[in-house]
Design a protein around this nucleic acid. Structure first.
Lengths: 259, 259
DNA sequence: TTGACAGACTTATATATATAAGTATATAAT
DNA sequence: ATTATATACTTATATATATAAGTCTGTCAA
């Protein structure tokens, strides 16, 4: 067995395991970095050394290294070597998907449509949706509630296009998962999101049963179609005490589906 | 030339380009998906078809597909095929690194140390840092300012360990970049982050020159060493009007360094 | 009609090999 | 001493090939 810098004998991959070889290499190297066998700034063994240690082909090592580079755990520069990166708070990512505090995507959350109307675009709406003032838009208001009370308030403006079946589909949504996923069912190309802290307006405070001026998270969204025209603009007002984004920096011990 | 579902003749890769073949495949497929040649739910050509179309080896196509899967643009299931995924707001990631509204990491931002003290841990601090009550901790307060005024207020508690050089290094920090990156210089393994909306306390409002109760973003951080013990706990209070996180969902046209 | 099975298709993993290209260092020539 | 060159190392890209394994479909027999 080879030795790591800290003197302990190295782990190796298990050929009988169901876990692919490249994934095992990723996991083992991540673990050793996490345990301090390789500190920040240290150089990892070269590709050929790793190939010899794990008894795998170059491509397998290469793939593992690429994954670690993708995750921001190491950095590789051609001709020099691969090095362990230190923690960098800027690399942290907050995903809506995972690890809020509260289970917002379960069946216990209820989405209620408060209002559905067709109105004419004012200056602000027209600019956001890239249409001319006075054009008709669909206006939706929703309230997302948990058993213990409302937690999010949603407002949305959509360009009114009878050919597009999006509007009808939108009206049927009854779960937050449908609201988050359903928007992009068909005909949408991409979306831009913004996240900021706001104070509750009178209307929002009333809906969320909170005092006016309470802090809240505003999650704004704009969706574009394949011609890159805005289709929908809206925002979620989330009660601060029910919505907290979690992130992490540093090596992960678990392995997701990766390249 | 082959034809895509929408009838236009397909792009192909350029062997003379500096751009690697796998990257070109990623770019072209991303573009075609973004332009609507393959809609959400549609099945992409099989690996062997793509291999024939681009005149590359299977591994190259495979790598490109893995990258697209990683990005959440397509999903591949063994034995069935690869399919274009629709937009899913839950997949959106907000990174601290990129795309705030304001340039927080430039030389125009100033980090000023307001206070550095050693005090004894109360119940709350002891629990967060996993130490016993009464133990000594280093307490730091910082104010991060732009030319037009203060934008962030930082408080941090660190376990007091004379052997660790972290404290001295922390005191020297004068840039936000150093503050974000320097924490993990050495001896730190990972960090957990939290992001939520808060209302400014009297102390915070005073420092940020804002009314008490104004909305703000609170970015909490805990850093752990290689024995998985908390080393530092702190949080940034960010003026809501200067700190807005941006994210995006859907195919990216640009190509970063990927596996 | 139903069920079992074979075959064709798909993605997934892994190997061995070749070539390209960036970096550092030792060596030889000036 | 300085400069140029050769060499040995590194990562990066790409090919051809083999095997495994999941999914669907048609065929044949009961």
């Amino acid at each position: 067995m080879n030795d790591t810098p800290n003197g302990t004998s190295t782990l190796n991959i298990n050929r009988d395991s169901d876990e692919p070889a490249y994934a095992q290499v990723v996991r083992i190297l991540s673990q050793e970095i996490a345990e301090g066998a390789y500190r920040a700034g240290a150089q990892l063994p070269s590709e050929s050394q790793l190939r010899a240690r794990f008894s795998v082909s170059g491509m397998t090592v290469r793939r593992a290294i690429n994954i670690l580079v993708d995750r921001g755990i190491i950095s590789a520069s051609q001709g020099k070597g691969t090095f362990v990166r230190g923690l960098d708070m800027r690399e942290a990512a907050f995903r809506l998907r995972e690890r809020h505090d509260s289970p917002l995507l379960g069946p216990s959350v209820q989405v209620r449509l408060l209002q559905a109307a067709i109105l004419t675009a004012d200056e602000r709406i027209a600019r956001k949706l890239d249409i001319s003032r006075g054009k008709r838009v669909v206006y939706l208001r929703r309230l997302i509630s948990q058993p213990d009370g409302p937690v999010m308030y949603h407002r949305e403006y959509m360009v009114y296009d009878p050919r597009r079946p999006t509007v009808e589909a939108e009206l049927q949504i009854t779960s937050l998962e449908g609201l988050f996923r359903g928007q992009g069912g068909q005909g949408l190309r991409r979306g831009d999101l913004g996240l900021e802290a706001v104070a509750l307006s009178e209307e929002e405070a009333d809906a969320l049963q909170m005092p006016v001026g309470s802090p809240a998270l505003c999650l704004e969204h704009i969706f574009y179609d394949f011609e890159n025209h805005p289709v929908a603009w809206g925002w979620f007002i989330c009660r601060a005490d029910h919505f907290r984004l979690l992130g992490r920096i540093g090596p992960e011990t678990s392995l997701g589906a990766e390249s």
